[in-house]
Design a protein around this nucleic acid. Structure first.
Lengths: 186, 186
DNA sequence: CCCAGCATGTAAGAGGTTACATGATTGC
DNA sequence: GCAATCATGTAACCTCTTACATGCTGGG
């Protein structure tokens, strides 16, 4: 039930259409939450039916019609209600870890391209977040932006962690290539 | 489709019953994958029907009957097939980030207990992983254990990252308490 | 003219969560 | 005797992913 509330927060920050939200979630604020446009449209319909948000149709000036959503009093109340109930920290669930452990039963070398791809993706995300950091969060920040920055920082921290970890894992896999014994040093 | 393969890897490492797998996933190797026993039983049935795994019933010596599963040739082949197809790095999806950004529209103080709870959970996990590290991964390691250790290291790295981030976020929220202006420094 | 991008959706199916259900054993 | 733990499952529900579907606009 968190996508609903992620959308509420995004709409409080800036009233938007579904498409616009999808684009923001895909691109710049991917460190905040990730969702596809299909999910977003479904949840927006549901929330409009519950009167958490209200639509204002901007008939096609140049582009096709777009429905811009704003959060209602009810939506705001619902967000606060949800924020008051505790959530548990999430558990791990990453297919790459499964593959790494599985590599003991197959050809570890085959994982090298995959890890290199992951490394590249995380490096890209990191530079993207750094650009946002320099552009939007330099100097004095009000509360809202200080909080947004703190969320961005988690993105930066984790991408950096991923990068370093990918390097380590690649070193390990490469060490297997040059060392055919069953024993290797940690 | 990754839980199936996570179970295959776990069963290759050590043939086990559903209950045993659930306990391991809940406790020690939570850094590897997280799943509930209901999910595990459902997937085990499915995989047994597909002949990826085979059951051997250990009739109750002291405890109730337990079905110990082993991976078949077909299961092993399926795992290798799956490992060869690429996966994309995952996107962010953490309710805590939503709440932090949402705090700009409610009472930021209310998040302090939540963040403290997260910090405590991550600290617990970290010490748990450190114990496993010292117990199982000290000294010379063969390939299988070197790979398992690399996976554990991701758990350690991320729990550490979370801890530091929680500290930072708590500092930020506390700074709001003592500073009622709308502007604060980054 | 055609393709890329804007903008909105529907439908089917896989995966995950929560609640319920059963029965035996060990420890207090 | 009762509660906790072992050990197995079923059923209902919700969420998420993937594929499909429509129509408009602007640039090469």
């Amino acid at each position: 039930m968190a996508l609903d509330h992620a959308l509420l927060v995004s709409l409080l920050e800036k009233p938007s259409s579904g498409y616009e939200l999808a684009r923001r979630f895909d691109r710049s604020i991917g460190y905040f939450w990730h969702a596809t446009h299909q999910q977003i449209y479904r949840v927006l319909s549901r929330m409009e039916a519950s009167d958490w948000i209200a639509a204002e149709v901007h008939a096609g000036e140049t582009a096709p019609d777009s429905k811009v959503f704003t959060v209602t009093k009810e939506g705001r109340a619902e967000l606060l209600r949800w924020m008051a109930e505790p959530v548990e920290p999430e558990g791990t669930r990453d297919a790459l870890m499964v593959k790494l452990r599985g590599a003991a039963f197959g050809a570890p070398d085959d994982l090298i391209p995959e890890l290199e791809h992951h490394r590249a993706t995380h490096a890209n995300r990191l530079t993207c977040y750094r650009v946002i950091e320099a552009r939007d969060f330099a100097g004095q920040l009000d509360r809202q932006h200080a909080l947004q920055y703190q969320v961005l920082k988690s993105g930066i921290r984790f991408e950096q962690g991923w990068l370093e970890w990918c390097e380590e894992a690649l070193d390990l896999l490469h060490s297997f290539k040059h060392n055919n014994s069953t024993r290797t040093r940690p």
